[in-house]
Simulated assay, not measured.
Amino acid sequence: MTRQEPIAAVAERYPHLTQQDAEVAVKLILDAVAAAISTGAGVEIRGFGTFKLKEVGARTGRNPKTGEAVAVPATVKTYFKAGKELREGVGR
Score class of each variant (00 low, 15 high):
26 V>P: 00
42 G>M: 06
23 E>Q: 14
58 A>L: 02
5 E>K: 10
71 A>G: 04
53 L>M: 06
11 A>N: 11
73 P>H: 09
54 K>F: 05
36 A>C: 09
83 G>C: 13
43 V>P: 00
27 K>A: 14
83 G>T: 13
19 Q>V: 12
73 P>S: 07
79 Y>I: 02
12 E>G: 11
52 K>N: 12
14 Y>G: 01
72 V>I: 15
43 V>R: 00
60 T>Y: 05
14 Y>V: 15
44 E>F: 04
70 V>C: 04
88 E>A: 09
54 K>P: 00
29 I>K: 05
29 I>A: 15
15 P>K: 11
22 A>C: 12
68 E>H: 02
60 T>R: 09
62 R>M: 01
36 A>M: 05
55 E>N: 13
66 T>Y: 02
44 E>T: 14
43 V>A: 04
51 F>E: 07
85 E>F: 05
56 V>L: 06
11 A>I: 12
87 R>Y: 01
2 T>E: 14
40 G>F: 08
31 D>R: 04
52 K>R: 14
66 T>W: 04
14 Y>C: 08
78 T>F: 01
39 T>E: 14
31 D>M: 04
37 I>G: 00
32 A>D: 12
20 Q>G: 13
1 M>I: 07
65 K>L: 11
17 L>Y: 13
69 A>D: 10
66 T>D: 09
77 K>F: 03
91 G>H: 05
86 L>V: 05
44 E>R: 15
46 R>F: 04
34 A>Q: 15
60 T>V: 14
56 V>P: 00
70 V>N: 04
2 T>F: 06
60 T>A: 07
12 E>M: 02
68 E>P: 01
13 R>A: 14
48 F>C: 11
6 P>W: 03
34 A>N: 07
88 E>I: 05
92 R>F: 02
13 R>H: 11
62 R>E: 01
77 K>G: 05
25 A>C: 08
41 A>L: 02
73 P>C: 11
24 V>S: 11
36 A>F: 02
44 E>A: 10
39 T>I: 06
17 L>C: 09
5 E>D: 13
17 L>H: 10
29 I>N: 09
22 A>K: 00
16 H>I: 07
76 V>M: 03
46 R>W: 03
3 R>G: 04
40 G>N: 10
76 V>K: 15
54 K>Q: 11
82 A>E: 02
41 A>M: 04
15 P>H: 04
67 G>M: 10
75 T>F: 06
35 A>F: 08
17 L>V: 11
36 A>G: 15
89 G>K: 14
77 K>C: 03
45 I>M: 13
66 T>E: 08
67 G>Y: 09
69 A>H: 03
55 E>R: 15
42 G>L: 01
32 A>V: 05
71 A>F: 01
84 K>H: 08
12 E>V: 02
3 R>E: 05
36 A>W: 00
71 A>I: 01
84 K>V: 13
32 A>L: 12
68 E>C: 00
53 L>W: 06
77 K>Y: 05
80 F>E: 04
5 E>R: 07
47 G>M: 12
6 P>H: 07
19 Q>N: 10
65 K>M: 08
92 R>I: 07
81 K>R: 14
78 T>N: 01
38 S>H: 12
17 L>D: 03
67 G>C: 09
7 I>S: 00
39 T>F: 06
6 P>S: 09
30 L>V: 14
61 G>Q: 08
